[in-house]
Write a protein that binds this DNA or RNA. Structure first.
Length: 680
DNA sequence: ATAGGGTTAG
């Protein structure tokens, strides 16, 4: 072929350059030809072709080497897009900054640059780019605007996203769906669902992507009915049930505790990835079905799919829940051998050690990994809190401040809870103040729960009550509950009754909440009120979670439930309990029958107290565990004040360290003293 | 001609 003739055939040239099938060799050859002919137009097309073929350096040098003009913008865009897709948004931004001024960026350019900022979480640069885009006349551009929506929601600035969204003259499905998933990831699922409703009212139908966001929202709110209707919508509209969509369905059903449906969906998936497994495993693990979670985890191990860190993290969650230290340790070892030790799995391991009572192992891991990741620190602060080590939590918080990492809402939730459980009232108040004033964090529900708990626990119920009066919004059930439980523990029955009324007005469904209210009325000896609330409990339909205690002896787990006679050593255990009881009494133990909230005879109350599940578990442990080893009991409910007393005596009699983990934290009993800062 | 939205786990 004669070169000049070939160059003259512009149409044919264009076809070669815009098809994505041109090989690199062809492109380099053409490059040489075009340089000779110095055709700027064609050089730009060539650069775009380079970018599409993955030769990004060649694309950039071609562009930089030819004079800039608006006609080179598609090529620059192709280059930016390639960097973005290739996962290097930083480079994309560098290229954007290096754009020659004569090449006028268009809507696509700005959209790509903003999307790179979103990926990097670089709000400052984005603001700059936004200004340029607006100046260039793209203020109303759908693409630029949705890129902004995505940017703001990824940077936790939902209010800015809302502002942009409200200013959009035209909103397409992508804009709506960005808002839906934005609200979901901001932890505001109710507003996410609101967005979806508005979208439908606007006459816009959902597609797979929107519906995934809606499903996440349903999972977060626990709205099972809405969830099922979304499922129906997907089927009715014949949507593509790919891995992502189906995994979201599985996740939603599992989070809503519809395990049969979740499992069925999972089994029907033609193709599953590691995320699908993790979704189901964690669904079980987080809802008290650790056994099934671990069964699935084992099944995943035997399937071809290697467990990734997500599945391991879910399995660790199940170990933490059940206090399975041995299995947890082996997963830790597996991660060390086979995977990169990332922050998420590191945090999960710390959490597992924490929940299994191995404060020392958690500390060791924390010190060895030494990470700059905030959540990692948060987990360790929470771990100290769970072990009643408020001062250590505070010290770690101060250390965190010295690193320059900014604490977040979760840091303060863990810290306040640690201080509360250690009775460090002044420190707690001070931290609550600092959180608001110095760190500019608006207290959320959980923070109010902590601070009210902190005050009320140490008897300052009036101060706690005043704090609630100063709140901007109405206190929620959880906040009232913290106050009420302080009233109950400090025998402030009168104030307690008014709070109980408020809680009942909010119509709580949770049995635990109703039980607390009922106990308060029992403490006030208002037995007709007690009956009333007990009836509510019965009508609420939700089953009371039976209290159980669990311990592992020589690798086997034993579960004890009050009044359960099924254990093969039942008679022996009862004898042991009685023996301990009489020895404790000789040492001065007096059963604290005020913890039995029923209208019963005193001696019946005393008997009931002796058969709490942790007492049975401890008796079993003393009979079977090797002498001198520590007994770690995992209990799903709180340890009552009487058991707390009793275990101190037992620990002294048996000369053993006894550790009881209740729903919230650990009580380390050694030589009759509990190392947890406060009582219960 | 081309760009913006989606799955688990701390």
């Amino acid at each position: 072929m004669r070169l000049p003739a070939f160059l003259a055939d512009q149409r044919r040239l264009r076809r070669v350059l815009s098809s994505s099938s041109a090989t690199l060799a062809t492109l380099t050859r053409l490059h040489a030809l075009l340089l000779i002919s110095s055709s700027h137009h064609l050089l730009a097309s060539l650069a775009a072709a380079y970018a599409r073929a993955g030769a990004l350096d060649a694309a950039e040098s071609t562009l930089a080497g030819s004079p800039a003009s608006p006609s080179s913008i598609p090529a620059w865009n192709a280059l930016l897009a390639a960097h973005s897709r290739g996962g290097s948004p930083g480079t994309a931004l560098r290229v954007f900054r290096a754009l020659p001024p004569a090449a006028r960026p268009d809507s696509t350019t700005f959209t790509l640059a903003l999307s790179a900022c979103a990926r990097l979480g670089d709000l400052a640069t984005a603001e700059n780019i936004k200004d340029c885009a607006f100046e260039a006349g793209y203020r109303k551009d759908v693409f630029v605007c949705s890129a902004l929506l995505h940017l703001y929601s990824r940077c936790g600035a939902m209010e800015d996203a809302v502002r942009v969204f409200d200013g959009m003259p035209r909103r397409d499905r992508v804009a709506w769906s960005t808002m839906v998933s934005g609200f979901v990831s901001a932890g505001r699922p109710v507003e996410a669902l609101g967005m979806y409703r508005r979208m439908r009212q606007d006459g816009v139908e959902g597609d797979e992507v929107v519906m995934v966001g809606v499903m996440q929202a349903c999972a977060a709110t626990g709205d099972a009915q809405m969830g099922a209707s979304v499922h129906g919508y997907l089927l009715r509209h014949g949507m593509r049930m790919d891995v992502v969509t189906t995994t979201s369905l599985v996740d939603m059903y599992a989070k809503n505790e519809q395990f049969d449906v979740a499992r069925q969906m999972f089994r029907m998936m033609p193709y599953r990835n590691a995320i699908s497994w993790s979704a189901l495993i964690s669904g079980f693990a987080q809802n008290g079905h650790a056994d099934e979670a671990l069964d699935l985890f084992r099944e995943m191990q035997v399937s071809r799919l290697q467990p990734d860190s997500g599945a391991l993290v879910s399995a660790l969650l199940a170990c933490a829940d059940m206090g399975l230290l041995k299995l947890g340790k082996s997963i830790h070892a597996f991660i060390l051998r086979r995977l990169e030790f990332d922050c998420i799995s590191g945090t999960a391991v710390i959490n597992m050690y924490s929940k299994c009572g191995s404060l020392a192992s958690a500390q060791m891991l924390f010190n060895r990994v030494g990470s700059g990741d905030l959540v990692f620190w948060n987990a360790m602060i929470a771990c100290y809190g769970a072990h009643g080590r408020g001062r250590d939590a505070l010290a770690l918080f101060q250390e965190l401040n010295e690193t320059g990492i900014k604490p977040d809402h979760a840091t303060f939730a863990s810290l306040l809870s640690a201080l509360s459980h250690s009775g460090l009232v002044e420190e707690g108040k001070f931290c609550f103040d600092r959180m608001i004033k110095e760190f500019g964090i608006e207290p959320a529900e959980k923070h109010y729960v902590c601070i009210v708990d902190l005050l009320a626990r140490s008897g300052l119920v009036e101060e706690a009550n005043n704090l609630l009066a100063s709140m901007q919004t109405e206190p929620t059930i959880a906040i009232w509950v913290a106050l009420l439980s302080g009233c109950l523990n400090n025998k402030k029955v009168e104030l307690g009754e008014t709070i109980a009324e408020k809680i009942l007005e909010l119509q709580p469904q949770e049995v635990g909440v109703l039980a607390l209210v009922s106990n308060l009325y029992a403490a006030a000896k208002k037995w007709d009120k007690v009956r009333e609330v007990r009836k509510l409990m019965k009508d609420s339909g939700s089953k009371k979670v039976p209290g159980y205690s669990l311990l592992e002896v020589r690798g086997t787990r034993h579960i004890f439930v009050m009044e359960d006679q099924s254990h093969p050593q039942h008679q022996e255990i009862l004898k042991m309990v009685a023996k301990l009881d009489s020895e404790m009494r000789k040492m001065g133990y007096v059963p604290r029958t005020e913890f039995v909230y029923h209208d019963l005879d005193e001696n019946v109350k005393e008997q009931l107290l002796s058969y709490h599940s942790e007492r049975l578990a401890i008796a079993f442990g003393l009979l079977n565990a090797s002498p001198g080893t520590r007994l770690v009991i995992i209990k799903n409910l709180r340890v009552c004040g009487n058991c707390h007393d009793a275990i101190k005596y037992i620990s002294k009699i048996a000369d053993r360290e006894i550790v009881v983990r209740d729903a919230k934290r650990f009580h380390h009993f050694k030589d009759g003293a509990c190392s947890c800062g406060d009582y219960w």
